[in-house]
Write a protein that binds this DNA or RNA. Sequence first.
DNA 1: GCCGAAAATGGTAGCGCTAACATGTAAGCG
DNA 2: CGCTTACATGTTAGCGCTACCATTTTCGGC
Lengths: 361, 361
Amino acid sequence: MSNEHARRARPVRHGLRLLGPIGAKPLALPRRARLADVASAAGVSTMTVARVLRDPAKVAASTRARVEQVIRETGYTPDLTARGLASNRSGLIAAVIPVLTNSLIAEIMQGLTDALVPQGFHLLLGASGFSVAEEEVLVRAFLSRRIDGIYLSGVEHSGGTVQMLRRAGIPVVEGGNITASPIDMVVGFSNVEAARAITRHLVVKAYTPIAYIGAFPKDNDRARDRRDGYERAIRAARRRVEADLCVETTLDIDSGARAMATLLGRRPDVRAVFCSADALAVGALYECQRRGLAIPGDIAIAGFDDIPIAGQVVPALTTIRVPRYEIGQKAGKMLCDRLAGRSVRRRIVDAGFEIVPRASA
Amino acid sequence: MSNEHARRARPVRHGLRLLGPIGAKPLALPRRARLADVASAAGVSTMTVARVLRDPAKVAASTRARVEQVIRETGYTPDLTARGLASNRSGLIAAVIPVLTNSLIAEIMQGLTDALVPQGFHLLLGASGFSVAEEEVLVRAFLSRRIDGIYLSGVEHSGGTVQMLRRAGIPVVEGGNITASPIDMVVGFSNVEAARAITRHLVVKAYTPIAYIGAFPKDNDRARDRRDGYERAIRAARRRVEADLCVETTLDIDSGARAMATLLGRRPDVRAVFCSADALAVGALYECQRRGLAIPGDIAIAGFDDIPIAGQVVPALTTIRVPRYEIGQKAGKMLCDRLAGRSVRRRIVDAGFEIVPRASA
DNA sequence: GCCGAAAATGGTAGCGCTAACATGTAAGCG
DNA sequence: CGCTTACATGTTAGCGCTACCATTTTCGGC
């Protein structure tokens, strides 16, 4: 292991190596300007340029003007990868959600990114497909990217996920449900209470029996809590929770229709259905209409989420309204506050819900 | 968990210097393991560890086993920021879309991320709100992050955006429409042809007059092309395009209902409507039903996109089916292929469309 | 046992930026 | 007019990794 050879002059890795032999046609692709280029063109040090970029007030007006001029001329853009490495701040916020194709989640994400981008953060998005194991894989990968903060759907996560996040020491917001013991912060609403409230609404209207159509509960605390709320309301009414009145399925309109068909096959006597998502409720509603069942005359239907179509179907859907966009926005604000060094007063934010009584139940 | 100021309270920048005098109590937060830690623990050089991570075949089995053991014990995770800086590859693919809350776009994004993640890439998402200016801002910011590739909604972009992307020399996929001259690659379908085809379907069925309800065309080539297709089909039928038969609005169900109301106010004689999106069509359909108009008896309605509800409404919606998920997936595959050094045979991929004739028209 | 080729492993110089500290320089004051 | 103070700017040493090349070890064939 003689250093003799190692010390020999070696070609350098600068972008310039791409340029080809001297005398060749002028460079087609001039390498990206960096801080040093701007600095030397403006006759200042790199630090001064960096200050112009990140803390202009600290630089004399005349110097700043000159530097800004050069920046404009060269089209210089800071390299955020390098900045991230040097500053230990990536400017990246991750969100791990089950799927993108769900209007509730999509609106939360829209709120999140709308809150983040003006503060200079960007959204790194991962879909776990309703699997906490996949969620853990994504969280690990995102931590490798040195994300500054993270949003997670729901309040149920693998031990590995929780441990990694605790150890990482970054702000974490769980969203879309509520818990007394979040990893760090949480913004959502009580799925149990909301489901209980709307089921009680059906109880009060004296429908009997009341069925349940919901999403698969595996790795989905929101679905589980909604079913839980349904069962509590049923029991509180001194009724029994009957297994054949409960159908669990995937989360889309077609599945809602099929679930309704299954339910009617098993229990022709059913008089009301609480569907744990409006998509399911709308599917169920159409299935009833195809069978000539009057709503709510023959069967009452209640949904959950108040998606735009809920107010348009005939009869309009009785449902639960939750502040989707605001949840995402609030989550983003909490993350930004923390990252700006401001302390967040309430780590547990209950955004609430609201029963929207319409014609269907 | 009080990570309130965890990231700020960092007087010294070198983990080891935090350790204090030997013999002090063990650290609460051991600094993240890095390559060098793993290397010394395994008694090899950093390069060998790096090879185990990225090209295991190049390392002797016994060495590899030892290194992998240490990696497992220490929970080492590579720092992708540092890797990005050193290798000039970030592993980040950006997508700039108008909004997240649109089922067509959401499904494309789902396909995109599903194709990307298994190849080790992650999705950086930005919403431009149907503004090419905002799109340009996002593209610039993402380029600062040294993204490896990018997906853009639509084929219409600002000159600045195009220029930046050309100069950046990264693979670009435009999606959701088709063009003969993409920035780089494009995968989508002809919105003009699809709109023309379904309008012709209405013409053939002899509805007269045929109206149009669509999204605002500003900074939205898909909307503009769909209207264009409508107009061509109308003219091809030797009819006139009448301004008061065309309503443009925002893209949601409620707007569809309002647009239908406007249209009926202006032209009670309208016999058919082509809606440039199913959300609008569904809203229009309900508005008609509320007014007691029979569909398609009094008014025929056709939509675009074949969203799940289109097949469920009564009457079911005649519409255009496009391979949403597949478009995203294909876009992701094209980006990955390019980045893996494989050449992409067809830079312009027409994913096609299909008329779905149902009861509404 | 020697040789050459192939396989395995290592050393070093950055990638472009920022934190921390150092220095220079102008303003304020008795 | 020297001395403090605040402001403006510069210097240095990495952040954790990979590219490039160099070196060492292994091994089949003669």
